[in-house]
Write a protein that binds this DNA or RNA. Structure first.
Length: 322
DNA sequence: AATGGAGCCAACCGCTTAGGT
DNA sequence: AACCTAAGCGGTTGGCTCCAT
């Protein structure tokens, strides 16, 4: 036996809203509010619409200060960073972007951002293959670091932090900054869920720090989780990177999270290291926003300010111009 | 000019969650 | 504690527009 319908479907109009319906709904809500009962609202107004449909129309279209289209670079970066951190939690992502609806962001991701990300990964892989062929032809033991700098430069900072790509400059700086030669993607076992979500901030921070030595973003402890993104064995690590974006983004979005989990050695559900979780269920995220988003956003905003001011920071317009 | 395919987006569907009784 | 109802949410779909042929 199925669920009882929320409204009398036979007497409910479906499909696109007419300007008259929009005007009725908007006028009523602006004057009286929703009254906390969407189901009863269409009857009060005299609309032959389902309450859910009214709610959706208001939230996604009629509500004041709604922005449609024209996503900025900053919004792109926030969306991508958050998607990488928390997956398709569109309402949470939308909460970080004033004026944007979850539906808008979801559509934008599915139709544009996702494809851009995959396209960039393909380009990077092609460049890497070409680089490997060149390297194979070169004399062994060369001190020259033949990184696919051009390919790396085509990747936005949020993506380059997820897909471990390095540049000669970053490599050199990393050597100066870190005496350790054992690059590891390791998480502190005691990492909390909050810390992992802060990973997004670290992505931004790590990218900033590799491009600007005096950025205040570099003050964020971006090596805490091993996501500083550069190291002597970077290409080996890249080859081992378990995420195929083609598969994950177009086939199984949750797999992106799983891939990151296994890659990072963390169970995002309980904060323990990989291998300790026996549950086959998807992770329980809990109240993510209360756990992390306030500090995360403030960190991000602070970081963003620096990025905007720092002319040496990687030009994110590369991303939009793809 | 006609047509077919791709891209985009508004809206719907159904499941989950939260709150009330 | 159990149940019911409405809101919230994310996945999916249908139809419109644009563009290439």
């Amino acid at each position: 036996m199925g669920r009882a319908p929320c409204c009398d479907k036979a007497n409910v109009k479906k499909g696109p809203w007419s300007p008259e319906e929009d005007a009725k709904l908007k006028a009523y809500i602006e004057q009286h509010g929703t009254g906390g009962n969407w189901i009863a609202l269409p009857q009060k107004i005299g609309l032959r619409r389902c309450g859910k449909s009214c709610r959706l129309r208001w939230l996604n279209y009629l509500r004041p200060n709604i922005k449609h289209g024209g996503f900025s670079e900053e919004e792109d970066n926030i969306i991508c960073s958050l998607y990488i951190s928390i997956g398709s939690r569109w309402s949470i992502i939308a909460a970080q972007l004033p004026g944007r609806t979850d539906n808008d962001i979801k559509n934008y991701w599915n139709t544009r951002l996702k494809k851009k990300l995959v396209g960039m990964q393909r380009k990077e892989q092609q460049a890497r293959r070409a680089s490997c062929l060149i390297k194979q032809g070169m004399k062994r033991g060369s001190e020259n670091f033949m990184a696919p700098a051009e390919a790396a430069s085509q990747i936005p900072y949020w993506a380059s932090s997820v897909l471990p790509v390095t540049t000669p400059e970053a490599h050199h700086q990393q050597e100066n900054n870190n005496n350790s030669t054992n690059f590891q993607y390791s998480f502190d076992i005691s990492s909390t869920q909050d810390q992992f979500y802060d990973h997004s901030v670290n992505m931004l921070a790590s990218s900033a720090s590799t491009n600007s030595t005096n950025s205040t973003c570099s003050q964020i402890p971006n090596t805490q989780y091993g996501f500083n993104g550069v190291g002597p064995n970077m290409f080996e690590e890249l080859n081992n990177f378990p995420i195929d974006l083609d598969e994950l983004l177009f086939g199984n979005p949750q797999g992106l999270i799983s891939g990151l989990e296994s890659f990072c050695g963390i169970d995002m559900g309980n904060g323990s290291t990989a291998g300790t979780s026996t549950s086959a269920e998807s992770p329980s995220w809990g109240d993510v926003s209360s756990l992390v988003y306030a500090p995360m956003l403030s960190n991000y905003e602070a970081c963003q300010q620096v990025m905007l001011q720092d002319s040496t920071f990687v030009d994110s317009s590369r991303f939009r111009s793809q």
